[in-house]
Amino acid sequence: MSETQTKHDFEPKIVAYVCNWCTYLGADLAGTNRLEYPPNIRILRLPCTGRIDFNLIVKAYEMGADAVLVSGCHPGDCHYTSGNYHARRRWMLFRVLLEGIGFDMRRVHFTWISAAEAKKFQEVVIDITEQTRALGPYGDFRKLLEAPVC
């Protein structure tokens, strides 16, 4: 019945940096509502999307993540009034850089998920997991990780 019951050849590793006040609570609610999703995601709780430094995203891939999710409060709902607005602008530019160096943009995801959007949390996790599973391990990037310098 569920996705997780089927065995797959490749189980992607997904790292999620989420805001404590919206997406983390949305994930809590998904739990309370028993909304099942694949177990590939590892959630790191941070106070606010404003706290999420781009280096953390790079670090996640360095640690072998196949995809990264960054998620926080919808615009206007930030617990700290504007942390998510700062984050949004930063990500917009950071994505440009990632894209420019040829990073596979299908492996980095940004969402707004509120404390009430348990269903959306579930759907996002299912989507990302399936998509990443279809993409396979990020071999191109692994190569860089291991390639010694000349």
Partner: peptide, 14 residues
Amino acid sequence: LGCFSVKDKECFIK
């Protein structure tokens, strides 16, 4: 950077 506008584009955010 270090500033923002509520009107910033966010088409990349789901």
